[in-house]
Simulated scan of single mutants.
Amino acid sequence: MIYLIRHGQAGFLKENYDQLSELGARQAQLLGKALKERNQSVSKIISGSLIRHRKSVDHSLESYGQKLSFTLDDRWNEYDHMELLAKYNPKFTDHSVIGDHLMKEENPMRSLQQILNNSISDWIKGEKEYVLEWQLFKENSWKALKELADQLKSGENAWVFTSGGPISAILIQLLSLKDEQFIDLQGRLVNSSVTKVLVGKNGLSLSTYNDYSHLDHNRNLITYR
């Protein structure tokens, strides 16, 4: 089984997004505790190279109670949301401009979500040039998953600490969905949630999507950004 773990809450709406908030650290700790209580063994741990990924590993393993090593793989990194926003609207290269724009809206959070969704939609359409094109991002995520699956022996489990983007890109291919459904899949992923992929004789299949039962006891722990 491969556990695709979304990182804890990051620095949403802060200039430096790539950091865990205090709540994000707590979410990762609760995940590690839950994995320990469920007696979930792990043979291999992979992490994206972003700070929020690596810190999520650290906090989870601290609660899991074992000092385990992990490998970094850039293919598990998130796309650059700031590049997508800038291509959607060149004025959005500045965080203050985005903030000023949202303050004029009746529902700032809803407006921000729509802007983000529109920028992702443009990226998927491929009508503009990006440092990392959508098709390559999708291919990289799938190749990373396949390579990891090929390394696992019968009965072994792997944990992958990553972001909502790679997880959702994998689900698109795993479930033969349309690329446009990526936005909805990603938008539903909870911070520190677990999506399980079964590695079987007939290939890869989805076992569990977006499991955040380790947070269910307190709704204030459940975040999406």
Results as ranks from 00 to 15, higher is better:
Val42Arg: 12
Lys128Val: 04
Glu37Gln: 06
Glu133Leu: 12
Ile222Trp: 14
Arg38Ile: 08
Ser56Glu: 11
Glu15Cys: 06
Ser96His: 12
Lys143Ser: 15
Leu102Gly: 03
Asp80Phe: 08
Trp76Leu: 03
Tyr17Met: 01
Met103Ser: 11
Ser154Arg: 00
Asp216Leu: 10
Glu62Asp: 09
Leu30Trp: 09
Tyr130Ala: 05
Glu133Gln: 08
Ile45Asn: 08
Gly187Val: 00
Leu132Pro: 01
Pro166His: 06
His217Phe: 05
Asp58Pro: 08
Val194Trp: 01
Tyr209Lys: 08
Phe161Lys: 02
Leu206Ile: 14
Ala144Leu: 00
Tyr79Met: 02
Gly48Asp: 10
Val131Pro: 11
Arg225Met: 13
Glu129Ser: 01
Gly126Leu: 04
Phe70Glu: 08
Ile115Arg: 15
Lys67Val: 12
Ala158His: 12
Ser213Lys: 10
Ile183Trp: 07
Thr195Cys: 02
Asn220Tyr: 03
Leu30Asp: 08
Val194Phe: 03
Asn140Trp: 01
Asn117Ile: 13
Glu133Asn: 14
Leu189Glu: 05
Trp142Tyr: 14
Lys178Ala: 12
Glu83Asn: 07
Leu50Gln: 08
Asn191Arg: 08
Leu189Arg: 07
Arg6Cys: 08
Asp216Trp: 15
Leu171Gly: 00
Asn77Trp: 05
Leu206Asn: 14
Lys91Asn: 09
Phe12Trp: 06
Glu83Cys: 10
Gln66Asp: 10
Val199Thr: 02
Ser192Trp: 02
Leu198Met: 10
Asp122Leu: 09
Met82Val: 15
His53Asn: 12
Gly48Lys: 06
Ile183Gln: 07
Gln186Arg: 11
Ile167Leu: 03
Asn218Ile: 01
Asp74Met: 15
Leu145Ser: 00
Tyr88Gly: 05
Asp94His: 12
Ile222Leu: 13
Ser213Leu: 10
Gln9Asp: 07
Ser213His: 11
Ser154Val: 05
Ala169His: 04
Leu50Val: 04
Lys153Cys: 13
Tyr88Gln: 12
Leu175Asp: 01
Phe92Tyr: 07
Gln19Tyr: 12
Asp122Ser: 02
Trp123Asn: 00
Lys87Phe: 01
Asp58Trp: 05
Leu132Val: 01
Leu20Pro: 10
Ile98Thr: 14
Gln113Thr: 09
Asp73Ile: 02
His81Asp: 10
His59Gly: 10
Asn16Gln: 13
Ile45Lys: 04
Ser63Pro: 06
Tyr3Arg: 11
His217Met: 07
Lys153Tyr: 12
Lys36Tyr: 03
Trp123Arg: 03
Leu174Trp: 11
Tyr209Ser: 10
Arg52Cys: 04
Ala86Lys: 04
Ala149Ser: 03
Met1Ile: 11
Glu15Ile: 15
Ile98Arg: 14
Asp94Arg: 14
Leu206Val: 14
Gly11Ser: 02
Gln66Arg: 15
Glu22Tyr: 15
Ser47Tyr: 07
Arg110Val: 13
Gln151Lys: 14
Leu198Thr: 04
Leu84Met: 01
Glu83Leu: 09
Ser207Thr: 06
Lys143Tyr: 09
Ile167Asn: 07
